[in-house]
C-alpha cells in the first residue's frame, strides 16, 4: 500500500480506510487506522490554537475547531517547522463568508502570527539612540533605518491591540473606536506590542519599506515622526541607521 493512499485517507474523513492494514487477527484495521487520523488532525488543530489563542477565543471553541480543521485539511504544514505553521490562516479566515461581519478577525490573527515570527527571529544588538541624536538635521533627513528581524508591523483599520488584549483577559477595557496599527518588537525574549496612531503606522510602514526619513515624512506629513522615532528607539525596534552621501 502506498503512502499516497495512506495520506489521502488521513486528511479526508469521508475517504475509505486504506486496504492492507489489519489487527493481530488479520481483521481489517478499522478504528486502529483512526488513531493516526485523529493524531494528525488533533495535533495540527492544537498547533493552530496555541499559535492563535486570541483568534480562538474570539471564535469560540466549537467554531474555532471547525474552522481550524477545515484549514488544516486543505493546508497541512509545508515544513516540519511547526513554529511557522498557520501563515495562511488569517487569509483563510477572511475568506469565510459567515465571518464577513467579523472583519477584524483576520488582522487579530495576523498580529498573533507576527508575534510568533518575532519570538523566533534572529537576535541583533539594538541601535544606540546616541547615534541618531548625533546626526545633524540634514543627514538625518537622508537617513534610512534598519529594523531588527524581530520587528513586525501590522497595519489595520481595526483596534486589534485592544481586541486581542480583551479576548485574552489581559485587559477589561472595551476596544476604542479608532484603528490600532500595532508594532511588534522584542527588546529581550518576549514580543512587546505597541499600538500606534493610524498615521504613525503608515509612516512606520514607509520607513520599514526603506524610505528615507524625509521621503516618509513627505508621504505622511501629518504623522509625528519625532514621537515615532522615540517609540522605535525605546522598544529597540532598530538595529542600524544609514546616512546617504550627498552627491
Amino acid at each position: 500500500m502506498s503512502q499516497s493512499a495512506f495520506n489521502a485517507a488521513l486528511l479526508n474523513p469521508t475517504a475509505n480506510r486504506p486496504n492492507g492494514l489489519s489487527d493481530a487477527g488479520g481483521r481489517p484495521a478499522g478504528k486502529r487506522f483512526d488513531v493516526y487520523r485523529n493524531n494528525v488532525t488533533v495535533s495540527l488543530r492544537e498547533a493552530l490554537e496555541t499559535g492563535f489563542p486570541a483568534t480562538a477565543r474570539l471564535l469560540g471553541e466549537q467554531n474555532f475547531n471547525t474552522i481550524a480543521t477545515g484549514y488544516l485539511r486543505a493546508n497541512p504544514p509545508s515544513s516540519p517547522l511547526m513554529m511557522l505553521y498557520g501563515g495562511g490562516f488569517p487569509r483563510y479566515i477572511s475568506a469565510i463568508p459567515a465571518l464577513a461581519k467579523l472583519a477584524y478577525l483576520r488582522d487579530v490573527a495576523r498580529l498573533e502570527y507576527a508575534m510568533r515570527q518575532s519570538y523566533h527571529a534572529e537576535d541583533a544588538p539594538a541601535l544606540d539612540p546616541a547615534r541618531l541624536a548625533s546626526l545633524p538635521p540634514e543627514a538625518l533627513n537622508n537617513a534610512r533605518l534598519t529594523f531588527a528581524a524581530a520587528t513586525q508591523l501590522v497595519l489595520t483599520p481595526w483596534p486589534i491591540h485592544a481586541i486581542r488584549a480583551k479576548a485574552l483577559g489581559e485587559s477589561g477595557e472595551n476596544p476604542p473606536a479608532h484603528a490600532q496599527p500595532t508594532l511588534v518588537t522584542r527588546p529581550e525574549f518576549d514580543p512587546i506590542l505597541t499600538p500606534l496612531p493610524a498615521d504613525q503606522g503608515d509612516l512606520c510602514g514607509a520607513l520599514m519599506a526603506g524610505k528615507t526619513l524625509a521621503e516618509a515624512s513627505t508621504l505622511h506629513p501629518a504623522a509625528d515622526l519625532g514621537q515615532l522615532l522615540g517609540t522605535l528607539l525605546a522598544s529597540q525596534a532598530l538595529t542600524d541607521i544609514h546616512v546617504e552621501e550627498r552627491t
Binding site: 495512506f6 488521513l10 486528511l11 493516526y36 495535533s43 509545508s78 516540519p80
Partner: peptide, 17 residues
C-alpha cells in the same frame, strides 16, 4: 516512521510495512 508526503508535513509518526 514517515511524516511527510510530497509537500505536506503531517506532524505524526506514521507506520511502515
Amino acid at each position: 516512521a514517515w511524516s511527510t508526503h510530497e509537500s505536506a508535513f503531517l506532524n505524526d509518526l506514521l507506520p511502515l510495512p
